[in-house]
Computed example of a mutant assay.
Amino acid sequence: MPHYTTFVTLLAVAFYFFLATRVAVAHGKFGIQLPATTGNPDFERIYRAHVNTLEWMPTFLVPLWLCAIYLNDVAAAVLGLVWIVGRALYFAGYSKAVEKRLPGFFIQSTACFLLFIGAAVGTFIHWANT
């Protein structure tokens, strides 16, 4: 059982929860009454960064675990940490301006791509050896 990837998964979920708290704070700060999710561009960027992270979670978590199980737990965990850092940079940048989200986006999408490659290679090796 992958041990390091377990901690990275919990960290990713904790990070997502943190982003949810930022949206809750932004509702009050920018006067956006629930259930509204529009009305102030500063709020909308924070909200979109949060929702976009949710949209990426399956694309991240599935290859993370396949890579950890079939290839290497440490490599998967390190790439998982890179993904979290990329998402944090994405959130910090997007909260300020739309165009500032791109460095974090490229970091996290590259980590996901590498996890996918690792998952595919590990799965193929496992399949070939059975």
Rank of each mutant, 00 (worst) to 15 (best):
H126I: 07
V8I: 15
I125H: 08
I69K: 13
F60M: 04
V85C: 07
Y16L: 15
T5N: 09
V82M: 09
C112Q: 11
P2T: 12
T130I: 14
T59E: 13
W83Q: 05
L79A: 05
I107P: 06
T123G: 00
H50Q: 15
F43W: 02
F18Y: 15
D42T: 10
G118M: 08
A20W: 10
G118Y: 03
T5C: 05
P58Y: 14
T9M: 07
I125E: 09
N52Q: 07
V74N: 02
N129E: 11
A111M: 14
A49M: 13
V62P: 01
F30Q: 12
Q33L: 08
N129P: 00
L10S: 09
P41D: 14
A24M: 13
Y94A: 12
F124W: 15
P58V: 12
F106P: 00
F124K: 14
A88T: 08
N129R: 11
R48Y: 02
F106W: 09
A120C: 11
F124Y: 15
A75V: 13
A68D: 01
L19C: 06
T9K: 05
V85S: 04
G80W: 05
L115V: 11
V51R: 12
T123R: 00
F43D: 07
F105Y: 08
V25M: 10
F18T: 05
A36P: 00
A92V: 11
W127E: 07
T110R: 03
L11W: 00
M57N: 05
T53Q: 04
I84A: 01
A14M: 05
C67N: 09
A36S: 09
A128E: 09
T130A: 13
A36T: 00
G80R: 07
A68C: 02
A120N: 08
A26Y: 02
W83L: 07
N52V: 03
T9F: 10
T37Y: 08
Q108C: 06
K100E: 14
Y4I: 06
